[in-house]
Design a protein around this nucleic acid. Structure first.
Length: 592
DNA sequence: GCCGTTTTCGGCCCGACTGTTTTCAGTCG
């Protein structure tokens, strides 16, 4: 086991192999097999070592004999000669070239083979001196586009936080809906699915008159560059680098197109396979019946009538499925659930009656306790939890014992004023120290209604095992107030990876100790990740959707958290802060 | 490389746009 690799590292190796095979021009289905295998491994809930030892890895869908051998070798030794040879056979710069928009594996292979270009820098020179334009199948325009793509590589290849994209998308959507002749408009893609980060936007419009819509879209104030403009599709880049596609479809195709462009790719593949098995062909243009004697691979004549579909729900229904909300369309187990009628009724923002993890000017917040309370009241909430930092977070002006006692007094005084309209709970975001002990003594914590336990220090340089033990020890600490585990991995999306922890073990520890786990709703955190909530729910661990607000506007981030909870398949009953004030009181005093 | 109540070979989702060439390949989603 010495030098063996963790699951996440193995997933990266498999994905890397797929990219390398792509550049080498390998069989595309073999490439897909590696991508599928990586995803299957990533989705594996159980401990990889256990599965390997039990000889069950090969029964995971998408992992066959060859991948079992490769994954086992990586897990046990950390080495894989096949991968090392593959990497040695492909110059590193070629992989980087794939990042250039419009430049795929085939073209990379040709400039490498015919011009000896091995890096982005060399490609730039070859574009500038005319060698690229001279290749057959390439031209002046290709070379010019490549140069532009190289220039903007860094700025434009970045993904964007869902929250930031929302701010761009909603006004554009309103503008599209307001255009004459537009019957419907939606944002599709990963934005609609509520992914935590979004690569680009996909707008979809239903109209019979495409030209004015395309004109209006490409002339929006926010548009920086028009990348393409066609009859059914246009692409633009907004100021700030976010790219957006607009597709225009006839109104009677809107439902099938919306489903198609919402994805995910994996979800669509499964839906198409299901359609084929039931005698239909599914595309963005609709659901087309196959006739007697036609094989799945036979082409359908263009004049063939499609099944009329007014809504996405009708598509699912026609295929014997319950409606699947966009957030669940990730190609995981949603088709199986829909087939059995077991799609959960997902939590909604309006189900929330308050939130717990919020800061004030007492520590590093920008709004006073009173301002935060009034903002929460404006959101229609019944209660608000105040949880400022504890003393170890000195950089955030964490509270010491005296200041904490004063804040608790302030909270109690607020609640005595019956006209205040919102109940405040006294909490604290207590640091989990390096050894897993808490930043306040149990006697001090006893005055609080609840605690949020968070790791803020000594994040790097700690092994996965030690970090897991550290958090579990904190969860097991015997203190009076009820516990919530704050931002589980400390990740900052698009900025910093979270520390490695054994999520399954921590969920078990939370369950054993009656602790809730926070879904930190800050758009840059969304931590614990939505992929783990099904497991937590199964173990009976409650989710607290907490904005970690540092000002009044921060309270609205809760919306992003609810979306992540929906992606995790959570219902109202799984979320602590959908409970009434009385229900929260019962939970806090330990009676539920 | 994976997969199988049409199975151990021969499939593996489908369509639009661009740039190039003139019927298409490559890329993207």
């Amino acid at each position: 086991m010495l030098g063996g690799m963790e699951k996440s590292a193995i997933v990266e190796v498999l994905e890397d192999i797929a990219v390398l095979l792509e550049v080498k021009g390998e069989n595309p289905f073999k490439i897909r097999a590696y991508q599928n295998g990586a995803r299957a491994l990533e989705a594996l809930e159980e401990d990889l070592g256990t599965v390997i030892e039990a000889g069950r890895l090969g029964s995971v869908r998408g992992i066959g004999k060859a991948l079992v051998d490769k994954i086992t070798a990586l897990h046990e030794t950390g080495k894989l000669p096949y991968y090392e040879d593959l990497r040695a056979s492909v110059p590193e710069g070629l992989v980087a070239m794939l990042e250039i928009p419009g430049f795929g594996p085939k073209k990379v292979k040709r400039v490498y083979a015919e011009l000896g270009v091995e890096s982005v820098a060399e490609l730039r020179r070859a574009c500038e001196d005319g060698r690229v334009a001279g290749l057959s199948g390439f031209g002046e325009k290709t070379a010019a586009n490549l140069l532009k793509g190289i220039d903007n590589l860094a700025a434009y290849s970045a993904r964007h936080l869902w929250w930031d994209v929302r701010a761009v998308a909603l006004p554009v959507l309103e503008a599209l809906r307001g255009l004459p002749g537009v019957e419907a408009a939606e944002v599709a893609g990963s934005f609609r699915r509520g992914m935590e980060t979004v690569g680009d936007l996909d707008f979809l419009v239903a109209t019979d008159d495409h030209a004015p819509v395309m004109d209006a879209f490409t002339k929006l104030d926010a548009v920086d560059t028009v990348l393409a403009k066609g009859e059914t599709k246009s692409s633009v880049r907004f100021e700030g680098g976010l790219q957006a596609d607009l597709r225009v479809v006839p109104p009677d195709r809107f439902a099938s197109a919306l489903h198609h462009f919402t994805g995910s790719k994996d979800h669509n593949v499964r839906m198409r396979q299901r359609a084929l098995a039931r005698g239909y062909s599914l595309s963005e243009w609709g659901l087309f019946p196959k006739r007697e004697g036609e094989k799945p691979e036979d082409e359908i004549p263009a004049e063939r009538e499609s099944v009329p579909l007014k809504t996405e729900a009708a598509i699912f229904k026609k295929l014997g499925l319950a409606y699947i909300p966009p957030e669940l369309r990730e190609g995981r187990d949603e088709l199986e659930l829909a087939e059995k009628g077991k799609i959960p009724r997902l939590v909604e923002f309006d189900d929330l009656r308050g939130v717990f993890h919020n800061h004030t000017t007492a520590s590093d917040g920008k709004a006073s306790l009173e301002a935060m309370a009034r903002a929460a009241l404006d959101l229609g909430w019944e209660y608000l939890g105040i949880a400022d930092h504890s003393k170890a977070s000195w950089q955030a002006h964490g509270l010491d014992e005296d200041r904490l006692a004063r804040q608790v007094k302030e909270v109690r005084a607020w609640n005595k004023d019956s006209g205040a309209g919102i109940h405040l709970f006294a909490g604290c975001e207590v640091d989990i120290l390096k050894d897993g002990s808490l930043d306040f003594h149990a006697d001090v914590l006893a005055q609080l209604d609840y605690v949020v336990l968070s790791v803020h220090t000594s994040m790097s340089g700690m092994s996965r095992e030690d970090m897991t033990l550290r958090i579990i020890r904190a969860l097991e600490t015997d203190v009076a107030p009820r516990k919530m585990l704050g931002h589980l991995t400390g990740r900052l999306l698009l900025r910093r990876e979270g520390y490695a922890v054994d999520v399954a073990k921590i969920i078990d520890a939370a369950a054993a100790n009656g602790a809730a786990i926070e879904l930190n709703a800050h758009p840059r955190r969304l931590d614990m990740d939505w992929r783990h909530w099904a497991r937590a729910a199964e173990k009976g661990v409650l989710c607290a959707v907490n904005p970690d607000a540092h000002d009044t506007a921060g309270l609205t981030h809760t919306r992003a958290g609810v979306l992540a909870a929906r992606k995790g398949g959570l219902t109202k009953d799984h979320i602590l802060n959908t409970r009434t004030l009385a229900g929260i009181r019962r939970w806090l005093d330990g009676s539920t």
